[in-house]
Design a protein around this nucleic acid. Structure first.
Lengths: 286, 286
DNA sequence: AAATAAATTTCGCAATCCGAAAAATCGGAA
DNA sequence: TTCCGATTTTTCGGATTGCGAAATTTATTT
């Protein structure tokens, strides 16, 4: 079909409107590179070693092609033949590529593009916070614009954990022993609008968050913002950090907000979890 | 030999005998995949963002080709365009490949909860490493929290075995023939703080570790950490892996550290050894 | 030993990829 | 602003090279 189009000379490209899009996309791509990447992707943690025919069927390519692809990857050092078997496996050279993706970047840099993807049309701001003693430390924050928002949180600010929506999201997923320890710590001094809640209020609130998987409420700081926060969980469901987004209370109801933001925030937390796992620890504030 | 056969059947492509080797190599390779990999490799820690023309010159390919390669990588999700600029950068998806390359997901999973039990009030971090050639590969690592700790080791990192405390713990329990073989191998390149020790120093150090049953020393990496490591031995006393824990040097002396951590670490190594035996998965990487 | 399955190689066709060069776009400098 | 230079993006023809089917070799099983 592409052959036809080509022979028709360059005039009629958009004759068939429906097709021109797909063709246009594929025009500037390299198919064999895409196939080679599919070969790499067919190796997983569960299936770290594969035979030629397994690769062929997983990557949906002809065995002959798979053979050539694997040979190329072996040449390049990304794949090795397992001795005394017909199987292949990824080498550690592949991990070098990954490190280049994240090297030198601290948690803030890794999180910033992800947070940026959360603010836009509706969301005013997105933040990333971590637990530091009894407080939440704001590690990164991205705002939609410089306009609006009176009271704002700066990077480096600390707020007692259970006055922060981010804090709620994290505390709710802490193992109970850890939670006890954190609640027994004394928050840093500062001027805050509310008096501390009593223990049973905290329990009830955290239970609710744990069940929903997120915390959602109006800001305690009189900024007129509605805030939704979700924890960044590691593979064992331990909270490493939490992400929040905010919209003006007048702009949408809690229900609308949740419907609108929840999936995007969840995706962001997964991305950040991956970034943290991949990069190991990085000092929160450089 | 294959060249002969070929020329009998298929005409004169191999007329010039000298060339047949080169032809033979390239016959089963896919050139555009190799070029695409060079594109990925042109991103490094020092140059995490590149323009099209930089990629083209670094990967030694035509700008037009580089454009198509980058488009393909963007499609596949391994590269992203940096907003508001003409630059490209690797995405975190690249790190996924790396994790698939790290051997035995099950080993990590069974070790993680055990490592987690080692970190807490005093210990900053606990790690599990295996021998990979002449290097130690960090397979899993659990930290106390995201704050604190400057320099840290990522999962997937490799360090020449005798610069790593985990390495000392493993080498000390290797059969002497194996030890010879490992010491004769060349570690992966990298920037490391110390020059290699000479042979007699290594001997003395390993002898000491063998007698104590553990390795204990200050990190060579200037992180201000004190590290204690013990091997995970199978039923034949062959070292399958090693566990380490770390505390800040200022927090306690070596003596206190040993008294505090030794039993817990020993229990952890025994647990991991048992778990490995139970799950049947034994072999490290060749 | 035979049969079956998998891996590797062959081979011809043409689709695809390449490179050069044109076109479009961006970024400064004047 | 307008112009110029550099970079990115698209075009295009041609031949390279990658593709798939089938043949051959190798291994695995019955």
């Amino acid at each position: 079909m592409q052959g036809e189009k080509r022979s028709k000379i360059a005039g009629e490209r958009t004759a068939v409107a429906g097709r021109s899009d797909a063709d246009e996309d594929s025009r500037n791509l390299v198919n064999s590179l895409a196939k080679g990447l599919r070969v790499l992707e067919s190796f997983t943690a569960e299936r770290p070693e594969l035979t030629l025919s397994e690769v062929a069927s997983l990557a949906k390519i002809d065995p002959g092609t798979a053979f050539r692809m694997l040979n190329t990857l072996v040449m390049a050092g990304y794949v090795a033949r397992v001795p005394d078997s017909k199987r292949f496996r990824l080498t550690l050279k592949v991990t070098d590529l990954g490190f280049h993706a994240i090297a030198r970047a601290d948690l803030r840099e890794l999180a910033r593009p992800i947070l940026r993807s959360l603010v836009g049309e509706v969301n005013e701001a997105a933040s990333l916070g971590v637990l530091d003693g009894a407080d939440i430390l704001y590690v990164e924050r991205v705002r939609a614009g410089l306009t609006r928002i009176g009271v704002d949180i700066r990077i480096g600010t600390t707020i007692p954990a259970f006055w922060s929506t981010i804090g709620e999201a994290m505390l709710a997923f802490l193992p109970s022993a850890e939670l006890e320890r954190v609640l027994s710590l004394k928050p840093r001094p500062g001027v805050f609008p509310h008096k501390p809640m009593n223990r049973s209020e905290i329990e009830a609130s955290l239970k609710n968050v744990r069940e929903c998987g997120h915390a959602l409420r109006d800001s305690y700081f009189g900024s007129g913002l509605r805030v939704l926060a979700m924890p960044v969980l590691d593979v064992d469901n331990y909270p490493l950090a939490a992400v929040s987004v905010a919209v003006p209370q007048i702009q949408m109801s809690s229900k609308e907000f949740r419907e609108h933001a929840l999936d995007a925030v969840r995706r962001a937390t997964v991305d950040i979890a991956r970034a943290i796992q991949a990069s190991g620890s990085v000092s929160a504030i450089a």
